[in-house]
């Protein structure tokens, strides 16, 4: 237990540091002391703080945590270390929603994109889970999700092929992902939605620990497979949908952060792995947010892949990755 506490304290310190850095850094650097003052007093920095930096920090924290937890749940339920938040086609569905809005000619403002992305993402979830009801086993759900995702991607490709240059530019920009799109008015909705999305996993720790051994093993240990599987897959898809709708598709986080968390915590017990994953997801997203003008997906992959490879290769022989 002491081992885990030390690790969590270390991660928490880095998280707090990154959070303050994101609030402080931007076109101009604002010291933490001035930041605190601007929270309570109206000043020239208050506008920047409340309208740009605070929403950015919140979006990165909750978005990063949400995607990472979604990826961990997907990997545990599907018993597949390469599963991520978007294996059930959520990102593709959101992209399709945004592409259709562009074709329909609605200007690509936040007001247009957000509902379109939401509608596309949740429609995908609905289709995948409605079709999966007729199948036994989780492989069927996975295949349906992949197929729906491929179909959505294909339709998006056709839309882009016939689309206008301006619309294309807007779609491509959205597709790069960014935590800067969250407005201060959306902060409460976004944060609450992410917290709600993570709650089922918090109440399913035992199931998530048992799931990698197969359905019979889960049942042997007194847990209802179908209830917890559906609950967690729906929650993980919901998390992916919310983050994608508000921030655009963000790859890497959901797939790689669970492995990073495992490498640091050295346990498969979700009691420790889940909070570590959430914390690390938030940290990596915050780190990427220090460079808001660069493409988010590319930045996180460039930062994160060497770290993952280092952890895997330095652990060789001590435990299997």
């Amino acid at each position: 237990m002491a081992f885990f506490l030390k690790r969590f304290c270390f991660l928490a310190i880095i998280f707090c540091t990154l959070f303050v850095l994101v609030l402080s850094c931007g076109e101009t650097f604002v010291s933490p002391i001035v930041l605190i003052q601007s929270v309570f007093e109206s000043s020239e920095h208050s506008v920047v703080f409340w309208n740009f930096r605070f929403p950015l920090a919140i979006a990165a924290t909750f978005g990063g945590a949400g995607l990472a937890v979604s990826g961990l749940v997907m990997q545990s339920v599907f018993r597949n270390p390469l599963a991520g938040p978007f294996v059930l086609g959520v990102s593709s569905g959101a992209s399709l929603g945004v592409a259709l809005v562009g074709v329909a000619g609605i200007a690509l403002t936040s007001l247009g994109i957000l509902p379109a992305a939401m509608a596309g993402a949740f429609l995908t979830i609905f289709i995948v889970f409605a079709c999966s009801r007729f199948l036994i086993g989780k492989t069927g759900i996975l295949i349906i999700g992949l197929m729906v995702g491929y179909l959505a991607d294909a339709i998006v490709s056709l839309i882009l092929f016939f689309g206008e240059a301006n619309a294309l530019r807007g779609f491509i920009t959205w597709g790069m992902g960014s935590f800067s799109r969250l407005s201060i008015t959306n902060v409460p909705y976004f944060s609450v939605a992410i917290i709600i999305g993570m709650l089922p996993a918090c109440f399913s720790l035992r199931y998530l620990n048992l799931a990698p051994f197969g359905d019979e093993f889960v049942k042997d240990h007194g847990i209802s497979v179908s209830f917890y599987r559906w609950l967690n897959l729906l929650a993980a898809s919901f998390l992916a949908a919310v983050v994608t709708a508000f921030c655009g598709p963000i790859a890497f986080l959901g797939l790689a952060v669970p492995h990073l968390a495992y490498g640091i915590m050295k346990t498969t017990d979700h009691c420790f792995l889940l909070p570590a994953t959430a914390l690390l997801g938030a940290m990596i997203a915050l780190l990427a947010s220090l460079f808001p003008n660069l493409p988010l997906q590319a930045l996180m992959s460039i930062m994160g892949v060497p770290v993952i490879l280092w952890i895997l290769l330095s652990s060789k022989g001590r435990y299997h990755a």
Binding site: P212, D220, H221, S224, Y262, T267, H320
Partner: peptide, 29 residues
Amino acid sequence: YRELFRKISLVRSHLQIPERILVKDFVSL
């Protein structure tokens, strides 16, 4: 299922074992 779990244990020889799990974590299940 929970009451059954508390009364009867089944050891399966054909169990799919994930690569990463440690012995202490497995027994804790």
